[in-house]
Design a protein around this nucleic acid. Structure first.
Lengths: 210, 210
DNA sequence: TCTTTTCCTGACCGTATGGTCAAGTGAAGC
DNA sequence: GCTTCACTTGACCATACGGTCAGGAAAAGA
């Protein structure tokens, strides 16, 4: 941005342009979907000629794949809260907190992911079948333990996880609808706080752990 | 399908072809998004020549608009449960029940709606600002009444509504992910029953009404 | 300084898409 | 029977898209 006219090193150039393109791509894919997005649009938003995009990313699909992987890794990392927790209140509270924060900071990534899954996960099916399946099974077992130990009500762990995903991601994926119903203004800091607290309160009371 | 070769009346032809096209369009738009869908694909799925589609629907956008309006009306109709209910348990229980049934019967419509909203609601923004806003305000007031009467815990009505939408529509919009995590098989009758019961149980306990 | 390697980009290409149209078909109305 | 009007459709068009390429610029290495 306010860069002095220092000549950039090779590696810096590569890194800088790749992230520039990836950010622009995330926005355009989120706003237009994979089919509606065009390389020209992404190039314009990144401020680069279209041919330059194809220098860094061979095809539109390659670029798209990278965008999807990015958000997936962010989500996986957020899930660490789950493991370092003593019980359901702490774990689920922290998880909701983390995922709401992600919905706020990376709404476009969330939308791209949602779009990808809705269209049958053409490029990340293997992730769903391996990484996500394993992660889900592990957390479901953890939740089942808490139930067996009487730390929470006997709810189906799988469906609880779906509810966690659905409620938190809703604030990113349907952000436009929420904004419209909020008088056309994006949620303020306080409103995000209230949203997070509402979701947490209902869910924690819902699993009989608060 | 197994139609005898009876000559069709004019009105029948129009009606039959329009619904045929609308069904095909809903599927294709859901699977590929607006940008990824092609009139040729929709035509093939409907078993009609492409030019015939443009006889009934002038443009791709017109066709798309109709598909979106369809699912919106289905949802509005499902919301009647809310009004004929005496209290929160009955109302929210019935609403979840109805919306889960819609997620099951009209997953493609739900996906098209989600996609439309995610992309900034380019064609149904006016619906959001009028019909949906009014409906939401009405139900939020209703919920607030129940809270004031001590029939449920003091949760933010707006965010409760978002949770209802998010959790129920998740089973349609992310159906592919759920199916993958379900061993690659779609949810059976019993599994849909269990899903609905899980969602209802957590939400009703969550609002302190069960 | 000279060579090599990476980076950059305007011009170009084949294809697929949304949409048009004019010519045809056959049921409705008289 | 004859006219009218809704319906049907293959062929066509302009445009826009993803992707290519050759050749130039500039940094790295010698």
């Amino acid at each position: 941005m306010a860069e002095p006219a220092r000549p950039l090193r090779r590696n810096e150039i590569r890194q800088q342009n790749e992230t520039l393109i990836l950010q622009a791509a995330e926005t355009v894919f989120a706003e237009a979907g994979f089919g509606g997005a065009t390389m020209q649009l992404i190039a314009d938003m990144a401020g680069l000629p279209k041919a330059n995009l194809h220098y860094y990313f061979a095809t539109k699909e390659d670029l798209y794949r990278r965008v999807v992987q990015n958000i997936f890794e962010i989500w996986l990392h957020a899930a660490d809260c789950f493991d370092n927790a003593a019980g359901p209140v702490e774990a689920i509270g922290a998880y909701v907190e983390a995922k709401m924060e992600i919905s706020r900071r990376h709404p476009n990534g969330s939308k791209v992911w949602a779009s990808e899954v809705m269209h049958g996960a053409p490029v990340i099916q293997d992730y769903l079948e391996t990484t996500l399946r394993d992660w889900t099974a592990g957390r479901a077992a953890l939740i089942q333990n808490w139930i067996d130990e009487g730390k929470m009500a006997p709810v189906d762990p799988q469906h609880l996880l779906y509810m966690l995903w659905a409620t938190t991601q809703h604030y990113a994926d349907f952000g436009h609808q929420i904004e419209t119903l909020n008088g056309g203004r994006p949620l303020s800091d306080a409103e995000w706080r209230a949203a997070t607290d509402s979701v947490k309160a209902i869910l924690l009371r819902g699993i009989g752990a608060a």
